[in-house]
Amino acid sequence: MDNINDQTTVPALRLPQQNGVPKYLLLRNYLSDEIASGRLEAGAKLPPEDALADMMELSLGTVQRSLRMLVDEGKLVRKHGTGTFVADGSTMMHAPFQHCRFVDEATGQLLPIFSKVVRRRAVKERGLWSMRLLAARPVCIERLFSIANEFSIYTHLYFDADVFPELATLDTEKLNGANFKDLLAREFHHPLTKFSEQLTVRVFPAYVCKALRLKAETSGAVLEIFAYDRRGEVVYFQDLYIPPNSRPLQIS
């Protein structure tokens, strides 16, 4: 989630009563339902924890436990010194992603990645992908990667629908949060054994700038990746448009 809007209005919150359910879980379920319904919009800033505790007539510890669960689930995001916000609906990648490993310098930990499909389309034009990927029916899946809800990356993944027909037809909602390298090996039994990468810096296309909420003609890093199987054949081509940011990218 980029450019969090501190001014997004939060509707009045009223915790329902339900016997036999622990209060922390009741609050967690209530806020989760409010987010799922859209009544709590992406980017909405929640009241401070003490104010939320007063509003819900709960202890501060109960509120903190509930919010911590929602942060862990990727439904809320905390911004240090700013507050707690509703995340943008992307799904966290649980399998490690090899090419997009940004590091929190304070802890040394890799930052979590949330992914969301923008669209899937048949490809008619040729491009860098077609130099090595021999695809009879090329398809491109475009996604947004949110890095710890701090900034986003735009990515295209090109593959052959004749080789992976399921990937070309699977409900795109099920692709949110998917690591395609892991998906190809686990679900489609097509493990990848080698990657070739190239990093350039150039001006982003207008639609990428718009999707990433950047100024027109913003320049940034573009990481281009060819993925190979054990036979040495190209399985897919992926590019990642990485905007200027303050996080180190681990490339080893």
Rank of each mutant, 00 (worst) to 15 (best):
I4H: 15
T9M: 11
T9Y: 14
L26C: 02
R28L: 11
Y30M: 08
I35V: 10
I35D: 02
R39G: 02
E41Y: 02
E41S: 11
D54N: 10
L58K: 01
S59F: 08
V63N: 08
S66H: 05
R68L: 14
V71F: 10
L76N: 01
K79V: 10
G83V: 03
H94T: 10
P96Q: 06
H99G: 08
S115E: 06
S115W: 09
R120M: 14
R121C: 10
A122W: 07
G127I: 02
L128A: 09
M131W: 11
M131Q: 15
R132H: 14
L134N: 04
A135T: 01
P138L: 13
V139N: 06
E142L: 11
I147Q: 02
N149P: 00
E150S: 13
I153P: 01
I153S: 06
L157S: 12
D160Q: 03
A161I: 03
D162Y: 09
P165D: 05
L170G: 00
E173L: 15
K174T: 02
F180K: 02
A185F: 06
H189Y: 10
T193H: 11
K194C: 04
F195L: 06
F195H: 10
F195S: 07
R202D: 13
R202T: 10
R202A: 15
P205E: 04
V208H: 08
C209W: 06
K210T: 10
K210R: 12
L212C: 03
K215M: 11
A216E: 11
E224D: 07
R230E: 11
R230N: 10
Y236M: 05
Y236V: 00
L240I: 01
L240R: 02
N245A: 13
